[in-house]
Write a protein that binds this DNA or RNA. Structure first.
Length: 275
DNA sequence: ACCCTCACCTGCACGC
DNA sequence: TGCGTGCAGGTGAGGG
């Protein structure tokens, strides 16, 4: 499900819901999802720790613990968090259950089981295997046109595939990569190292605007962690301009949106606007 | 350093 | 109805 904007909202919702909560025990139903440490160590490091705040780095959700450790969770495709009151049943695909001192349960659910959970020491977090190679945060000063131009100049891959590489550009996924290229009016097939300076500038702005707009529109939706599936509520509307719109008219020029496959994943673009 | 392929899972929509 | 296929908002290992 999530790209950076969704992870941003989920981490905000979690920060509201479980900051200050104390974990009294952890039930690991699917040990494969625990990475980096053994399930036993994972449980030991979580037990009797309080969550002081929840944030994110890229698409990783970071639960800061008062034990000077961080619980790191990546939702991958189908990971979700739900909080349950004592009378609520455990939902399907519940793989890790955190029992909280206030009698609630924080449940990690994941239909496809691609997600990962790990725990690391505070002072090792940025150097951890998961985070060390990530590109700068898209809204930080370090993610600027010099950075992007240099990174792109080293890559012969298509710009669409380049944008999905979290070590080059952080936060876009398959939807927002197409959306950003549409805003920047760049063809997804263009080689990353072939794109003009002007277009790199446009792409930088398009990446920021795409993420920014997605975060802003999501903020009116809110995530309800108690609704049983942890999903966005009340939206069937697609505010995407090209994604999943094959054959529909381009919002700019009316030409039919096209779909192509790159790196085994769908890309959508306007053949007239994106040359 | 870069980049390609395969792997990891379950479910759903679709066509025959 | 059943079965095969393709596809799904993501990475990571391994190898060239």
């Amino acid at each position: 499900m999530p790209e950076l904007p969704e992870v941003e909202h989920i981490s905000r919702a979690l920060n509201q819901a479980v900051s200050g909560a104390k974990v009294i025990s952890v039930e690991i139903r699917l040990p494969r999802l625990i990475a980096g440490v053994s399930p036993t160590t994972f449980r030991r490091h979580l037990r009797n720790s309080s969550i002081t705040s929840v944030g994110r780095r890229g698409k990783w959700i970071l639960f800061q613990l008062d034990s000077n450790r961080v619980l790191m969770v990546h939702l991958r495709m189908t990971g979700k968090f739900v909080t349950l009151s004592p009378e609520q049943p455990v939902p399907p695909y519940a793989h890790v259950i955190f029992y909280l001192a206030d009698e609630r349960r924080l449940v990690y659910c994941d239909m496809r089981q691609f997600g990962r959970l790990t725990v690391v020491a505070n002072n090792k977090i940025e150097a951890s295997d998961s985070l060390k190679a990530l590109a700068p945060e898209p809204f930080s000063q370090n993610f600027n046109s010099d950075y992007l131009r240099t990174a792109m100049s080293k890559s012969r891959r298509s710009i669409k595939e380049f944008l999905l590489d979290q070590t080059r550009v952080l936060g876009l996924g398959n939807i927002y990569a197409s959306e950003a290229l549409f805003l920047a009016r760049i063809n997804p097939r263009s080689a990353a190292n072939s794109i003009s300076r002007l277009r790199v500038e446009r792409l930088l702005e398009a990446i920021r605007n795409t993420l920014d707009e997605a975060i802003a529109s999501g903020s009116t939706l809110r995530i309800d962690l108690t609704d049983g599936d942890g999903d966005y509520i009340g939206t069937d509307e697609r505010f995407w301009r090209v994604y999943e719109r094959e054959g529909e008219p381009c919002v700019n020029c009316g030409a039919a949106i096209k779909r192509l496959v790159q790196g085994a994943r769908s890309s959508y673009y306007c053949p007239r606007c994106q040359r």
